[in-house]
């Protein structure tokens, strides 16, 4: 049985625990064992802590990775930010033994060590490679036919592509492939590859700017007539969902576009109860459930 250590990060467990719950249920459905990564911390966030002190960022990331290594398991994550930090740290420490040595000097203070033997996989990779599109398609219990989905990749799953290694960052298709396998329809929209606006500490440091980018993205989704916006990242999820409340409160802009995480969408199609997938825990109500006859 394939197993992963589930790296929670911050946003999912502390703001959107529905995503944590949905991941566990969906992985169970596909017979993927998820181990608790006890004692994990913030990844730390790539654009925030990476912008403050990259050395500290690398050392703390190495600790999180070492937790997986002690369990002899790769980590998996449902957040592009966590993925960015831990995948990049894994990459750096795997490629450069001298950097690994220096990091381990610090880790030795807490009696830990990281040899880059295990790393991290994004949940998208688990779906695409461990489970496979065919398996997902054949496992559909409740086809999502008629559901128009605006796919959002987020930045850090794909980029920088030379480190991530998932191919083109300008014409990705894996999320569309999954959406199609579930019976739903991915809709084209102009700003598909635009950032959610939250990253790099901009959400914390300049919320207005972050929201302006979010609004541009959402307006494009709306224009395309999508029923929801799909994301593979807790932080983008947060920004789109909470951001719509903030846009309403601060700027009086109303979008009401439901936000759904990849694990939730797969869960729905697997026939898992919407409530236990945390779909009702969003700020924006999941109106698409009516269309699917699931309310």
């Amino acid at each position: 049985m394939t197993k992963y250590a589930f790296f929670l990060g911050c946003i999912a467990p502390l703001r959107y625990p529905g995503l944590e719950a949905a991941t566990k249920r969906v992985m169970q459905h596909f017979n993927i064992e998820l181990l608790d990564l006890n004692g994990a911390s913030c990844c730390p966030a790539p654009g925030v802590f990476g912008s403050f002190d990259l050395w500290n960022w690398l050392v703390v990331a190495a600790r999180n990775l070492s937790l997986g290594e002690s369990l002899n398991a790769d980590l998996t994550t449902i957040c592009n930010g966590c993925y960015a930090t831990l995948q990049e740290a894994w990459h750096i420490l795997k490629e450069d033994p001298s950097k690994r040595r220096r990091v381990n000097e610090v880790l030795s203070k807490i009696n830990r060590n990281y040899n880059a033997k295990t790393g991290i996989k994004h949940i998208i990779e688990v779906f695409a490679n461990d489970i496979g599109i065919d398996k997902i398609k054949s496992s559909v219990e409740k086809s999502l036919e008629g559901l128009k989905v605006a796919v959002h990749y987020g930045c850090h799953f794909l980029k920088p592509r030379k480190i991530r290694g998932h191919g083109s960052s300008e014409k990705p298709h894996i999320l569309e492939d999954i959406v199609t396998a579930l019976g739903a329809e991915p809709v084209h929209y102009k700003e598909k590859l635009l950032c959610c606006g939250a990253g790099g500490g901009v959400r914390a440091g300049n919320l207005d700017a972050a929201l302006e980018i979010t609004a541009r993205k959402l307006a494009s989704v709306k224009e395309a007539g999508a029923d929801c916006i799909l994301n593979p990242c807790s932080f983008c999820h947060f920004q789109f969902d909470r951001g719509q409340v903030e846009l309403r409160e601060r700027k009086g802009i109303e979008f009401n576009i439901p936000v759904i995480h990849l694990v939730q969408l797969v869960g729905l199609a697997m026939g898992i109860d919407p409530k236990s997938l945390g779909l009702y825990e969003n700020e924006i109500p999941p109106t698409y459930l009516d269309k699917l006859g699931l309310r």
Binding site: C155, K159, N206
Partner: peptide, 11 residues
Amino acid sequence: WNCTTCYTCQE
């Protein structure tokens, strides 16, 4: 501090 680190420029 307004860079969202989206990496589009780097790409």
